[in-house]
C-alpha cells in the first residue's frame, strides 16, 4: 500500500487544523507523528482513514483518491482517541462482531490476538467492567485483528504499564514486518524513536520531518 498526501489543508470551525501537508508513505514502514496537544495529529489520522475529507488537496491510496474513487482505504485498522467497543459484550464477543463483517479471520485469530495483548479469550467480564488499561489493550487487538495493510494508531501507550508498552512495540513491529503501513501518533518521544522509521512533527497544522 502507498499513501500520497498532496497539499492537504483542513479547516474545521474556522480553524486551520492542517495546513498544506504533503507526504508519501510506503508500506512496510512505521511513521511516527509527534506534536503538542491540539497540533493536529489525530485530525491527520482521521484524514488518512477517510473519516473526514480535506478542505483542499487530496489523499491517494494506491493511486485512488479518498473521498472520490474510494470512501475508505480498503484495509485499515484503527485506534483513534479512546478505544470504542460495545459495553454489553465481552472482549472476545466484541472482536467476533468486528471479524464477522469481512470474515477475513477465524476464531483462532481472535484467541491469538487477545493472548498477544494480554487479555483472556475466556474472560466473561463485559467491556463496561474493563479498566482503562484493559480497554486500551482491546483497542489495540481490534486494530491489528485482521492484519490490516494500513494501521492508524493514536496514543497506543495510554494507560499501559511497562509490559504493556513493550507488548505494543512488539506487535507494531510484527505488523510492519508483515508489510503494514503504520502511522502512529504518540506523546512518548522515546517510544516513537525506538519504533519509527520516520518521525514527523506536527506543529500548527504543518507536518515536517
Amino acid at each position: 500500500m502507498k499513501i500520497e498526501v498532496v497539499n492537504v489543508t483542513k479547516i474545521l470551525r474556522k480553524c486551520r487544523v492542517l495546513d498544506d501537508v504533503s507526504l508519501v508513505m510506503e508500506q512496510g514502514t512505521i511513521y511516527g507523528l509527534k506534536g503538542i496537544n491540539g497540533s493536529g495529529k489525530t485530525m491527520f489520522l482521521r484524514l488518512l482513514a477517510g473519516l473526514i475529507y480535506p478542505s483542499s488537496g487530496s489523499i491517494f491510496c494506491d493511486g485512488k483518491k479518498l473521498g472520490k474513487d474510494i470512501s475508505f482505504p480498503p484495509d485499515v485498522g484503527l485506534l483513534l482517541e479512546a478505544p470504542a467497543f460495545l459495553d454489553e459484550f465481552t472482549a472476545a464477543a466484541n472482536l467476533r462482531l468486528l471479524a464477522n463483517i469481512r470474515q477475513k479471520v477465524r476464531e483462532m485469530r481472535i484467541k491469538e490476538v487477545l493472548d498477544q495483548v494480554g487479555l483472556s479469550y475466556t474472560d466473561t467480564r463485559k467491556y463496561r467492567h474493563f479498566s482503562l488499561g484493559m480497554k486500551q489493550r482491546l483497542g489495540i487487538a481490534g486494530a491489528i485483528l485482521e492484519h490490516p495493510q494500513l494501521l492508524l494508531i493514536d496514543e497506543p501507550t495510554n494507560a499501559l504499564d511497562t509490559k504493556g508498552v513493550e507488548m505494543v512495540k512488539e506487535l507494531l513491529l510484527e505488523e510492519k514486518e508483515k508489510g503494514a503501513l503504520v502511522v502512529l501518533a504518540c506523546h512518548d518521544f522515546s517510544f516513537l524513536e525506538e519504533i519509527s522509521d520516520y518521525i514527523y512533527t506536527v506543529q500548527e497544522g504543518k507536518v515536517f520531518q
Binding site: 477517510g50 470512501s71 482517541e81 467497543f85
Partner: peptide, 17 residues
C-alpha cells in the same frame, strides 16, 4: 451511542457510511 463512543469508526471503515 456508537457515535459518542467512537465505535462507529470501527464499523464504518469496514462497510462504508
Amino acid at each position: 451511542q456508537e457515535r459518542k463512543t467512537g465505535y462507529i469508526r470501527n464499523v464504518v471503515t469496514k462497510i462504508g457510511k
